[in-house]
Design a protein around this nucleic acid. Structure first.
Lengths: 154, 154
DNA sequence: TTAAGTGCAAATATTTTGCAATGAG
DNA sequence: CTCATTGCAAAATATTTGCACTTAA
């Protein structure tokens, strides 16, 4: 499935939104930098290309993209939301290890096939049972990373 | 494994903390009200028993309990952290469906056995591969609940 | 006795909102 | 043209910190 500028443009129109320069650039940043960006991370990247940008626009665009099911929004517990483009490609699907001490996030995709199989089943069962439309899922393992494990005394 | 006041008291001491009345009551609230409470939820409950309580103490105690691996901290994307006691009992283990529109959270434990089996394996592999100490994991399915699915036009 | 714990008030940090100006279609 | 979108400044929220007082051990 192609997801170029043309596809996005049409998709925006279908949802009753206009395609604008800030929105195009935000999408570009999201597609170039794959991993769990915060609103400010995105702001900084967009600013390099389009210094007129405001943080408000970042937040509002991310809301729209989440509604359009193009972006997943997740919070790893460091007090800010993180966003990623939702990918079709199996190879890009991944989950997270999150360090409770320093906030470091490690992506992994070991056993992703087995996970996918189970999750496909789960999504089907759960969405029927609870009459729930599932857009995406997240899996996170929380603990202490390499460094913090040896450092932390608390 | 018993987890009464005595067990907790000892555990606190082992970590170099003192057991205090606010902490006891917070633990009591957490054990009576199992599910994903926010700091303020907890504050309100504790206040009923101990009106001298301050929100700060709630936050500080929850930090300690997270460090002590007695509580899991999770953020469902509504801008506040949620906390639950980590349970040994398999029957209490559960995961979540989260509505992106209204924030409703549904607990489920269908296929928990299959999940558990896979996750035990994953935890072992991941913790070795990344030299990471895993305290707990969270699984969340994000989408639209029954009500919001039919209401939302956005 | 004394270091750890507490509550308050103030400080941070993130996200949201009101509003006048701008721009896409 | 017209209405959605934008950026700014201000507001709303959640969480953290400084500090003097209190308390468990």
């Amino acid at each position: 499935m192609g997801r170029g500028p043309r596809w996005c443009h049409a998709r925006f129109r279908n949802f009753g939104y206009k395609m604008t320069q800030p929105r195009e650039i935000i999408l570009d940043v999201l597609s170039r930098t794959k991993k769990h960006l915060s609103a400010e991370d995105i702001y900084i990247e967009v600013y390099k290309i389009y210094p007129g940008i405001g943080l408000t626009t970042i937040y509002r665009t991310l809301d729209i993209l989440t509604n359009m099911e193009m972006v997943s929004r997740y919070d790893f517990g460091d007090g800010r939301s993180r966003y990623e483009l939702i990918s079709d490609k199996k190879s890009e699907h991944h989950h997270h290890l999150i360090c409770l001490n320093c906030g470091k996030i490690i992506d992994y995709n070991d056993y992703i096939d087995e996970e996918t199989k189970l999750f496909d089943k789960l999504e089907k069962v759960l969405s029927e049972k609870h009459n729930f439309k599932i857009n995406y899922h997240h899996v996170g393992f929380y603990g202490l990373c390499d460094k913090c494990k040896s450092t932390t005394s608390s």
